[in-house]
């Protein structure tokens, strides 16, 4: 365990070192605030502007979580649908990849056209951005169930639903939770993109306005908030993943492979 502690220490000092180096470079080369503000300035801005920033931060996290929630529900349903049969998987996969590879920024104007500016397009953008990794992972988890495991269930005259609930879904759980970590950060990206393009609230909007006023420290304050929220959500879902799918980490010597 001491090696793990050492890694944690190294990773923390890298983080702290990064900000110290940033600060020093700004001071030594006398970089102007409008180009690159010092971290200390960013923190100061964060502190003094907090009452103004807070509602925006709340808006962004709210939009992200709602969009993420919708993305999970839709993603699991689609994933189960596609992963439950080999044929559905093969037929739907090309279409899925096609949709997944459309840059979600390009969809925002369309969403604004349909639902107007504001929270609604942001929620939808968040949902569709995080949808695909969930669909693909759940479908893959289901589609790669060991045939012998299914044979055992079939000889017991298990129904499709029995197999899905007892074998398929539990087996897809590690894939699902691995996708959640990625999906939640993607939902963030979706929200901020939409807020930047068409909203009068949220961190994305705050950064747009700040940059139009050349308030670069405030832009960086926004970035910092996004980074912290993103890391926090990633960490939260990593912990959930560890709790729920701990069994995957200890079965590497198992014959099931």
């Amino acid at each position: 365990m001491s090696s793990q502690a050492r890694i944690r220490l190294a990773s923390t000092s890298l983080l702290v070192g990064f900000f110290i180096a940033w600060e020093l470079i700004c001071v030594i080369f006398q970089i102007r605030d409008i180009v690159l503000p010092r971290p200390s300035q960013v923190l100061m801005t964060l502190w003094t502007e907090a009452p103004g920033i807070w509602p925006h931060a709340f808006q962004t996290i709210y939009t992200t979580m709602v969009g993420f929630g919708i993305g999970i529900v839709a993603g699991v349903l689609l994933g189960v649908l596609i992963g439950s049969s080999k044929i559905a998987y093969d037929v739907a996969y090309p279409l899925l990849i096609g949709f997944a590879s459309i840059p979600k920024v390009a969809v925002v104007p369309l969403l604004v056209l349909w639902c107007g500016a504001g929270t609604a397009p942001a929620i939808i953008t968040a949902a569709i951005t995080c949808l695909f990794p969930i669909v693909v992972n759940v479908a893959t988890g289901l589609a790669t169930t060991e045939p012998e495991l299914e044979d055992v269930m079939k000889t017991l005259r298990a129904t499709k639903t029995d197999i899905l609930l007892n074998v398929g879904l539990p087996r897809a759980m590690p894939y699902f939770f691995a996708s959640l970590k990625v999906a939640v950060t993607l939902a963030f990206v979706g929200t901020v993109i939409s807020e930047t393009v068409a909203s009068n609230r949220g961190i994305g909007n705050l950064m747009m306005i700040a940059s139009s006023r050349y308030d670069v420290p405030l832009v960086f304050a926004g970035l910092l908030i996004l980074a912290v929220m993103g890391v926090a959500l990633y960490a939260a879902f990593s912990i959930v993943e560890l709790r729920v799918t701990g069994w995957t980490r200890r079965q590497d010597h198992l014959s099931m492979g």
Binding site: E146, E148, L149, D151, V152, T155, N166, V167, P170, R171, M173, T245, W247, T248, Q251, L254, S255, M256
Partner: peptide, 11 residues
């Protein structure tokens, strides 16, 4: 049914 592979559910 029992196979050569024990196929226990690991969770």
């Amino acid at each position: 049914m029992a196979f050569q592979n024990p196929t226990m559910l690991p969770w």
